[in-house]
């Protein structure tokens, strides 16, 4: 087995185990900490997929900012220790994800993907495309997707103003 395979399986097992902990644990503070573990394992997968910039963004935004926000919200509400109760919809709530998972797994494995590896000069293409990705991503964002980039900025501004007006005391 290659080193990358070992890293993949370790990260995958840790990530899925932590994800199950997030939804099943009673102690919500531990759930929030396990969510950070899931985010970090996904960041590791991004490194395996030659998306180093996204791995850094993932650690900064998800593992840093979003998890701190969630922990603050937990502390502002009650029942942190025993708060993660199930509702009365256990059977359908278990059935739907199970069905969806089997359907997705079948589709993913059965589809005949048009892989980059199948091209004659795959090695050269992958080497050239996935080197210096921050520069290429910046070019794509500011040229091809400039409109969506501006819209994302407007969305963030709107959500900041919305969140402020929601939690304002008056």
């Amino acid at each position: 087995m290659l080193f990358a395979d070992v890293v993949f399986w370790v990260l995958a097992a840790g990530g899925v185990g932590a994800a199950l902990g997030v939804v099943l644990l009673k102690d919500m503070f531990r759930s929030a900490l396990l969510l950070v573990v899931v985010f970090l394992s996904v960041a590791g997968h991004f490194v395996l997929l030659s998306a180093e910039f996204l791995a850094v963004v993932q650690v900064l935004i998800y593992a840093g900012a979003i998890s701190i926000l969630i922990i603050f919200a937990l502390m502002l509400t009650q029942n942190v220790q025993q708060g993660n109760l199930p509702n009365r919809m256990q059977a359908p709530a278990l059935l739907l994800p199970a069905l969806l998972l089997s359907a997705l797994a079948f589709v993913f494995v059965d589809t005949d993907w048009r892989l980059t590896e199948s091209l004659p000069n795959a090695g050269a293409i992958v080497d050239a495309a996935f080197i210096d990705t921050p520069a290429s991503l910046a070019k794509l964002l500011l040229e091809n997707y400039a409109m969506a980039f501006g819209a994302a900025g407007a969305l963030l501004l709107a959500s900041i103003i919305g969140a402020l007006s929601l939690v304002r005391e008056d």
Partner: peptide, 30 residues
């Protein structure tokens, strides 16, 4: 892809089956 499907379905279960709104949001993030 299968790993991402597993994470997605764990999150979906959390959204559907839990009562605490913050757990629902954490599952959405998953």
């Amino acid at each position: 892809l299968v790993l991402s499907a597993v994470l997605f379905c764990v999150g979906l279960y959390g959204v559907l089956a839990r009562r605490n709104a913050i757990t629902v949001l954490m599952s959405l993030e998953l």
